[in-house]
Amino acid sequence: MGKIFKFYKDVDTDQIIASQYLLFPTIDEMKTHTFESLNSDFAKDVRPGDFVVADENFGCGSSREQAPGVLKALGVKAVIAKSFARIFYRNSINIGMPVIVCKDLYEAVKDGDEMELDLENGVIRANGKEYSCTKLPAKMQEILDQGGLIASLNREE
């Protein structure tokens, strides 16, 4: 089980990690500024295995891979949203962080609730109920299974 951190719709990449932190030498140095403008305690409060749950269009805006990067570095197990912006979606898979489309979860949970994710069967359990989520296209699932694009490319060679 992991705790839910709930955000609204159209959360953009500037809000996930602002541009002034993008050239910090490592993702670990950037991660303390995650969601700074929305919830300055997020980086402090989130624990490995927790989840980010959002409405439509999560991760819109820039192409910065640091956005899924800081979430992964903080131990966020998966982002579950009604929909994702496409660059954020691809970037997440490429760094091996699950991004799950689930239409029904958002309205059913509140910030601080607990949930469990069964990635293999595409099922989320929260507050005693089950929610089914969309599976990834085969090409993306393959990259995710191998731990990201680097591992995947290395395997092809």
Binding site: S62, R64, E65, I87, R90, N91, N94, L149
Partner: peptide, 9 residues
């Protein structure tokens, strides 16, 4: 647009 890992690929 794409991320830097995909671009490296």
């Amino acid at each position: 647009g794409i991320g830097y890992t995909e671009m490296a690929g």
